[in-house]
Simulated scan of single mutants.
Amino acid sequence: MIGDKQIGTRIFNIINATLLTILALIMILPFIHVVGSSFATGAEIAEKRFLLFPTKFTLSAYKYIFSTDTVVKSVMVSIFVTVAGTLWSMLLSTLTAYGLSRKDLVGRRYIMFFIIFTMLFNGGIIPTFIVVQQTGLLDSLASLIIPVSINVFNMIILKTFFQNLPYGLEESAKIDGANDFGILFRIIIPCSLPAIATISLFYAVTYWNTYMHAILYLSDAAKWPVQVLLRQIVVLATGMNYDSAEYTDVPPPSQSVKMAVIVVATVPVLLVYPFLQKHFAKGALLGSIKE
């Protein structure tokens, strides 16, 4: 019987590893195709429908994108919005989640009801635009942060995590004379780093991918985040006239420029993820069964 179980376990492990490998390849091959196409020549892109590793590398697409300092400034804008927005959103979400996780909070159920209500119903684009306009946030980077300060779903995840922490930690801190802010910042947050890291990554990705709000609220091109600027680059690259005499060199193919744009917009987030991987793996198990 023991031998049969071992054989069954090995067969399961082989099948499981095979399926996971296939799924991993399905997910990673499109990204390799994007990166490879961004370094490929126009002739090779036209010849091969699915390109992974170009035979001749060229940086023409990236030179076209970074031909001016506009992209660099736009990337800096996105970095500022991402960092400032994530810190601001995490501060508000953490304070709100901690307050709502306390069972002795007066009116806790009613407050929670009105917060969840915003997940189901909202004013829409036009009323939100009017609010942003009337508060003087138009054409400012704050318009990309303040209107989306708190994501209700993320806040509820933090609230649930805080509720699952042992209440004895708070009681011990109160006996030692700690107030609510001391308990939150010295005990609750250090014990909740997996949840904090996970929600922070969610917020950071959302702010980095800001597009629609920038289109609606920003008229100054110098304040555009990278997503908006790169969209403009893709449009210009698609409409490039290859027969025009204004080009001294052969311009990069539009498909190569599009792929390079995707790489530029994706790589910064990929560089941040390894630093949060340890906490993110734990945070992904929020709500799972604990021993």
Rank of each mutant, 00 (worst) to 15 (best):
L19T: 02
Y203A: 03
A43C: 07
F153A: 07
S78I: 14
Y211I: 03
V263E: 06
D249K: 01
N209R: 01
S60D: 06
P253I: 00
S172R: 09
S192I: 11
T68D: 08
F121K: 12
E291I: 11
M155K: 05
H33I: 12
G168Y: 10
Y64A: 11
T9A: 14
L87N: 01
I22F: 15
S93I: 08
I2Y: 04
F66Q: 00
L230P: 12
Q232V: 02
D243Y: 12
M76P: 05
L230E: 10
K290D: 14
L218Q: 02
L276G: 02
I188K: 12
L95Q: 04
K48P: 08
G107P: 00
K174D: 04
L95C: 07
F181V: 15
E171L: 11
G85V: 04
T128P: 07
V106C: 12
F185N: 05
S101H: 02
L23R: 10
K290I: 10
R231W: 06
S288M: 07
S288C: 04
V77G: 04
T128W: 04
L236D: 15
I187E: 04
L286C: 02
A84Q: 01
A214Y: 04
I233Q: 03
L23D: 05
F39T: 05
F53D: 08
T210H: 06
S143T: 11
P225T: 11
I22M: 05
A61S: 10
G42V: 07
F280T: 15
K258S: 14
S101Q: 02
F66V: 00
D180H: 09
I26D: 03
N13Q: 13
P194I: 08
W208T: 02
K174S: 13
V75L: 15
A40C: 04
W88E: 05
T128M: 13
A265N: 12
T55L: 15
G36W: 02
F129K: 12
L25T: 00
P268C: 13
D220N: 14
Q227T: 08
S143W: 07
T58P: 06
